[in-house]
């Protein structure tokens, strides 16, 4: 009979390391791949390489697992200074627990070996904490955490994602650290609504675009990945708590030196 290989695990973190040279990303052919597919390919690549050398006897009893591709090249080369670099992090949160986002951001800072993020873009899932429906309070809870990190000098600029004008205005009026960016989906928002356009111009909020799906890593997709990499039994119950995507750009050259994903998934073992 098949037995689960990670029966105790309720938290799993995968860190892709630098994906710039991942073969799986180059192989993409004609049709532009969605970022969901890109993310899944990266995670698969990491798991494939890490699971080859894993000691299953040890993993059996762990409650939290972590798979990381050790990073071979630093974000900064010798010639550049930190000022030359622009580090952008997009935090796509499915879990609105304030402690979780702090942990997530600290992981990225460590990964990039830096103490400051230039731009942090916050995106909150339509279904935070799996069962709830998005409410501005979810966003505000997380925003407060980020404001404190701005105060501490860990983040320079804050932005939000996919807010329409009323929500953006509400956040703007409420927040101590005002959003400087609203990143909107380029497919669902081909034409910028005039009210959003006028408001963002007035408040000097930059409108950027992204091509990410509303849920970048749906639970079914993650479970499918777990099924392929572990077993059917190990795949049950997982859902994403956050996906962080980070890029380090040499400002004046438009060259991206680092790009990576850090993902955390969780499950409640009692519910399986």
């Amino acid at each position: 009979m098949e037995v689960p290989r990670i029966p105790q695990a309720s938290s799993l973190i995968i860190n892709s390391g630098n994906v710039i040279n991942f073969e799986c990303l180059k192989k993409r052919k004609r049709i532009a791949q969605s970022t969901t597919e890109e993310l899944k390919d990266c995670l698969k690549t990491v798991l494939d390489s890490r699971l080859k050398t894993i000691n299953w006897d040890e993993e059996k009893f762990k409650t939290s697992l972590e798979f990381t591709v050790p990073c071979c090249n630093p974000a900064l080369s010798d010639e550049q200074t930190r000022e030359d670099l622009k580090v952008t992090v997009k935090a796509m949160m499915c879990n609105a627990d304030p402690e979780v986002i702090v942990d997530a951001i600290h992981r990225v800072l460590k990964e990039l070996d830096t103490d400051i993020i230039d731009v942090l873009l916050l995106s909150v899932s339509e279904k935070p904490n799996v069962i709830e429906t998005f409410h501005m309070d979810h966003l505000k809870t997380l925003w407060s955490v980020l404001e404190r990190m701005v105060d501490k000098g860990q983040i320079k600029t804050l932005g939000v994602c996919d807010l329409e004008k009323p929500a953006l205005e509400e956040l703007y009026n409420w927040a101590k650290v005002k959003p400087s960016i609203d990143q909107v989906n380029e497919i669902s928002c081909c034409i910028i609504p005039p009210d959003l356009n006028a408001f963002s111009k007035e408040k000097k909020i930059q409108l950027l675009t992204h091509g990410d799906a509303l849920e970048i890593l749906p639970a079914e997709d993650f479970q499918e990945l777990m099924k392929e990499s572990f077993s059917d039994l190990d795949a049950q119950g997982w859902h994403t708590s956050w996906v962080l995507r980070y890029t380090a750009l040499i400002r004046c050259r438009g060259v991206i030196t680092r790009k990576g994903y850090t993902v955390r998934a969780q499950r409640n073992l009692n519910n399986i």
């Binding site: 993409r28 532009a32 952008t88 731009v119 873009l121 909107v184 910028i192 950027l208 991206i256």
Partner: peptide, 13 residues
């Protein structure tokens, strides 16, 4: 397009 998409600070206009 792959390159532009990876540049996160190109605004909508």
């Amino acid at each position: 397009n792959r390159y532009i998409d990876s540049m996160k600070d190109i605004d909508k206009e």
